[in-house]
Amino acid sequence: MRINLHVWRQPNTEAKGHIQLYTLDDVSPDMSFLEMLDVLNEQLIQKGDDPVAFESDCREGICGTCGMVIDGIPHGKQSGATVCQLHMRKFKDGDDIYVEPYRHTVFPVIKDLFVDRSAYDRIIQAGGYVSANVGSAPDANANPIPKGIADLAMDAAQCIGCGACAAACPNGSAMLFVAAKVSHFNLLPQGQPEKATRARAMVKRMEDEGFGGCSNYYECEAACPKNISVRFIAKLNRDYLYAAFKEGV
């Protein structure tokens, strides 16, 4: 296949970027999207040009390192998949493909498609845990947890922290990420003692980091490679309201 790739090139954070066109011949439909970029990069190295910087590690959709916007959609058009799981057979010969970094003030571009997502780490640091020191745990079966609750917590816990939700949100809100993390713990009995504090602290950190507010567009849910549901945002709202009454904001 022949692919016309329009790639965002930006040498560093301060520089002004631009879209650069690369035409790739002999793209195999069996390639993953990132392997196609690998091929482009090998060609650029041969030509002595700086290859396109992008992040990716596990290449099986679980580590959350990759993330770029393909034709306006974070992780591309295949739903429930990361960009490393997107294959070229989903495109047609002669397609024009636009590849851009996440565009978000909280995720500044470091280089090309490479962005800084450390704000997500700081949100977790604000309360995305159960404060249980090693050694203090009772037997794992001491507290049975209804299967439905455990499964729902697992649905939320699947978040890979890739940043697609905030990148997809027209408001640049990270509510789906925060909601997934808060819900995972707040659903489980182990998370109850810190339930209110967690909801309040993590939302507060999200605000302090500069993310936008949620307008219930649900674009985050559509972009999420792990199909995390916006119902967790409703749960976060509930927990936050509870926290606001209990502890103030």
């Binding site: 794992a140 209804p146 713990f185």
Partner: peptide
């Protein structure tokens, strides 16, 4: 035990165990 206490959502049976 430790991972469960930290909130790792291991798979459970209907009885909750």
């Amino acid at each position: 035990d430790q991972s469960t206490a930290m909130g790792v959502p291991f798979a459970r049976e209907y009885g909750g165990y």
